[in-house]
Computed example of a mutant assay.
Amino acid sequence: MSAARGVVLYGPPTAGKDTVTTALTGLNPKYAQFARLKVGAGKSAGYRMGTAEQLHELEAAGDVVYANARYGNTYAIDRPGLKVAFEAGVPVVHLGQIDGIRALVDGYSADWAVVLLWCPREVTEQRSAGRGDSDTAARLAAWDATRDDLNAHPDMTWDLTVNTTTAAPQNAARLIDQLLAQRAGAASA
């Protein structure tokens, strides 16, 4: 039996994680964005909204693979959620921290394709303003944190790097799909 396959998309805000995931899903419905557990307020689309009590229960059971705080909320990747996502197809996990990638890859057994989506800071500012974000300053701070995270982990290796200012989302999706197909072929050889 081959290992379950998943995709990790890492990058700063507005680098295209949502857009590339939508393109992946359009390419093949087996792909689906992993809905992290979110404890807090604000945007609920793309998340499983939860309570602090639910998060504490998952932590007590050892079922939190990774959690982080940003924008005044807590976001968690949990084992029960991942199990459901893998049963449904190929989860696409969005992360903005290399420690999160390492926790996921080391803490949940699967064949993870780790993809860096990148755009310059000024592009993040333009895209954030263009989509009407009310928290562009916080997104720029997150962009700075992502750059600092990359600089702090020069040993991080990527299975694929895509500059989303030059690659269309559909092209990025095709590259990711091809990467997974190649890995599946190599695993079965």
Score class of each variant (00 low, 15 high):
Glu125Thr: 00
Glu122Ile: 09
Ala88Arg: 13
Trp158Ile: 12
Tyr108Val: 04
Asp106Asn: 14
Arg36Gly: 00
Leu175Trp: 15
Gly42Asp: 13
Met156Thr: 13
Ala110Leu: 07
Ala76Asn: 04
Val92Trp: 07
Asp177Ser: 05
Gly132Thr: 09
Arg79Thr: 06
Leu175Cys: 10
Arg183Gly: 00
Val7Arg: 00
Gly96Glu: 03
Ser134Cys: 07
Ala110Phe: 09
Glu59Ser: 05
Ser2Thr: 13
Glu57Gln: 15
Thr25Asp: 00
Asp78Thr: 15
Arg131Asp: 12
Ala52Val: 09
Thr51Phe: 13
Leu179Ile: 07
Val64Lys: 09
Gln170Arg: 12
Gly6Leu: 12
Lys43Gly: 03
Gly100Ile: 05
Gly185Trp: 14
Ala45Ile: 02
Asn68Phe: 09
Thr19Met: 04
Arg36Ser: 05
Pro91Gln: 04
Glu87Asp: 12
Ala103Val: 02
Asp106Leu: 05
Val115Tyr: 15
Lys83Arg: 10
Leu180Tyr: 10
Asn151Arg: 15
Val64Leu: 04
Ala173Asp: 10
Ala167Met: 07
Arg36Asp: 01
Val162Lys: 13
Leu27His: 06
Ile77Tyr: 09
Thr21Trp: 09
Ala60Val: 13
Gly107Ala: 04
Glu57Asn: 14
Pro29Gln: 00
Cys119Ala: 05
Tyr10Gln: 08
Pro80Cys: 10
Asn73Pro: 10
Ser44Ala: 11
Leu24Lys: 03
Ala76Arg: 02
Val123Asp: 01
Pro29Asp: 07
Asp144Gly: 04
Val65Met: 03
Ser128Asp: 03
